[in-house]
Design a protein around this nucleic acid. Sequence first.
DNA 1: GACCATACTTCGTGTGACGAAGTATGGTTC
DNA 2: GAACCATACTTCGTCACACGAAGTATGGTC
Lengths: 113, 113
Amino acid sequence: MAKGSSTVSEPTYFILASLLDGPLHGHAIIKQTLELSENRVRLPVGTLYGALDRLATNGLISVDREEVVEGRPRRYFVLTDQGRTLVGSEALRMQQAASVVTARILRTGSAFS
Amino acid sequence: MAKGSSTVSEPTYFILASLLDGPLHGHAIIKQTLELSENRVRLPVGTLYGALDRLATNGLISVDREEVVEGRPRRYFVLTDQGRTLVGSEALRMQQAASVVTARILRTGSAFS
DNA sequence: GACCATACTTCGTGTGACGAAGTATGGTTC
DNA sequence: GAACCATACTTCGTCACACGAAGTATGGTC
């Protein structure tokens, strides 16, 4: 389906953002998201794997490869072109939305540093 | 309970943003949101009034006054201090999240203008 | 052997977005 | 003056998603 106006949630957004630098497996995405968000966004596993399924179904990511490291299975995910495009346009959307508010707050001289 | 890490959705965010310039009634919020978002966000009425209830319950907005204009009732809502603070910090959060992605996209030289 | 970390699975619950249908009023058009 | 449209708000049902929790499996540490 991939409607143009998806408006992705924060967990989903950071999952996509985590994959910008290259393929990662599930737990690595959790760590990368923590880093990217400066320790703000701690993805719960239930959220992560549910979202990964959805994103793969919608063609925004795909499975890169699966390997077994020290007996533990790892599934690596990559951004598709569509996913890369989406996370980029989401970033622009957020920037626009943010600037609307920051401009107004400055203008009305509110208690913000 | 006004958790610090609420992470407000796009409709909710724009409702709060619409009220930064002063009290508005429901339908005026829809129009203001359209304007602020450059015609991107068209709030459905079901979403709007549901969200207004929730926001009022959570103390982020409150009813300013009710009047009847040309036979039609209007209920005006105002931002509370808490609401104003929240929308400001949400804007900062979005800005940070956006910049993480835009920086990476520039660095990896993706197909973005 | 108990315990912890990594890695992933599955399930159940609750919240929120939103489409749709409905109520009420006033203005316009024929 | 009936039909119709715009404004303004209400209520309901459904669906998607977040996320807590419990579970499976492996290897290392104490």
